[in-house]
Simulated assay, not measured.
Amino acid sequence: MATDPLSVHVDLDGGRDYDILIGRGLVASAGPRIAALGARAAGIVTDTNVAPLYAEALRTSLEGAGLRAGIVTVPPGEASKSYGRFAEVCDGLLALKIERNDVVVALGGGVVGDLAGFAAASLRRGVRFVQVPTSLLAQVDSSVGGKTGINSPLGKNLIGAFHQPRLVLADTASLDTLSEREMRAGYAEVAKYGLIGDEAFFAWCEAHWQGIFSGGPERDEAVAACCRAKAGVVTRDEREDGERALLNLGHTFGHALERITGYDSARLVHGEGVAIGLALAFRFSARLGLCGGQDAGRVANHLALAGLPTRLQQVPGGAGDADSLLDAMAQDKKVRDGALTFILARGIGQSFIAPGIDRAAVKAFLDDELAAG
């Protein structure tokens, strides 16, 4: 068994509460923990990058705990969050004879977690679900909170369901095999939590980000801190009726960039879009007089130091024009009655929901950002 993992509890009503375990070696020890949920069989959903690294170790652990286990694989990358791949995953799980009392296990990053979670929510009208995230982004953000879904040609994450996992096993040793690019991309979501509501955590990140990247004790501490922050928000606002929207800081811009680039991970991965979005959100806030320019500069400087992009000009192949970006934003999940809603900031750690932002003001800002050197 893994040695003394850190634990974060997500306290939801109706018997839907669950634990997030954080530590090294949790993939190899997953079997008894998942078997304790009462399932007889497990369908592992993973991608072709992660499968050679961890799928057999997970299946061996599950079978050693007495579960029948099978594997469904999809190609890596955002393009797998599609109608076609969703159908393939559902059919693959049905072929494994996964029943309602069994469990679907998502082994991979955010794409696999979103796709497998949506399949679990839909299969037989709801099958139990376990997240085993293997990317930093998934461990600190997408594996927690029950948001599942796929993309539409009209926008990101527009088809999905809320389906809470029964357990999250964040094996931080799996981050040792991440590419430097994916590690940086995940770090954007780590920094986001400090920018939303915890300036002290952002300052801690400024001091300790290299330890997170190198795999020191700071890595587990950062994952646990982010999970605690998200668990609190999810407990108070499970279905994003209010406060949970704050977790989308930087995402209105970032999701638009992902759509502009056609969800092509060779050009832009989610965390890179978020990093640019975080920098844009703070520069836009400064432009509106909500926060000081020094805050916007501090955010951009730290993200750049961690190797992340902060400007539209850094999107390979270009970020389009202001009108195309605005059209992409019009499909954002936070749009209400056709009006744009942004997460803006009065300072680091002081983010807030800003509904009804004037489209002309956004266009003028984007025009200037695109024209900047």
Results as ranks from 00 to 15, higher is better:
S351M: 10
A36S: 15
S143I: 09
D198R: 10
V104Q: 10
K363Q: 15
E206C: 14
S61E: 08
H255P: 08
V130T: 05
T48F: 03
M1T: 01
V103Q: 09
A296L: 10
R239Y: 04
V168C: 04
R283P: 04
S351R: 06
G149Y: 08
V140F: 13
G64F: 12
D102L: 08
G232C: 02
G110P: 09
D327V: 12
R346D: 02
T3D: 06
L268W: 01
S179P: 05
I348E: 08
L26F: 15
D91P: 01
G43A: 10
A304W: 01
E199M: 01
K81P: 03
I150S: 03
A30T: 15
E56T: 12
P5M: 10
A256H: 03
D13N: 12
V72K: 05
D13L: 13
G373H: 04
L175K: 01
V130N: 04
T60S: 10
G84L: 11
T134K: 03
G77V: 10
A319D: 11
G110C: 11
K363C: 13
V168T: 07
G66D: 10
G126I: 04
G338Y: 07
D220Y: 00
E272V: 02
F86R: 08
A245F: 07
R128A: 13
L115Q: 07
P76K: 13
Y187D: 01
L178S: 00
Q331L: 08
V190F: 14
F118E: 06
A222V: 13
L312P: 02
V223S: 01
S29Q: 11
L167N: 07
Q350D: 14
S142W: 14
L67T: 02
G25L: 09
A200S: 12
V233F: 13
A371F: 08
G292F: 01
R311V: 02
D327A: 15
F118T: 09
P316T: 04
S351D: 04
P316L: 09
T48D: 12
A286Q: 09
N248D: 10
V27T: 14
F129C: 00
L308S: 08
A55C: 06
S122C: 13
D11N: 07
S324Y: 05
N248E: 08
G349F: 15
G31D: 09
R283N: 08
N151H: 12
R228P: 02
D198E: 11
K156V: 06
V10G: 00
Q139E: 11
A225S: 15
F352E: 11
V72W: 05
P355Y: 09
S285Q: 04
A339N: 04
G109F: 13
S351H: 07
A281V: 03
S152N: 12
A372Q: 01
T177K: 00
D337R: 14
V112L: 15
R336P: 04
T46Q: 05
L308D: 10
K363M: 11
G145K: 09
K156T: 12
M1L: 04
D11C: 05
K156I: 07
V223P: 00
V233R: 14
G109S: 07
P316E: 03
N157I: 06
R228S: 10
H255R: 07
D332I: 07
G307K: 15
L94Q: 15
D337K: 10
A319M: 10
D327N: 10
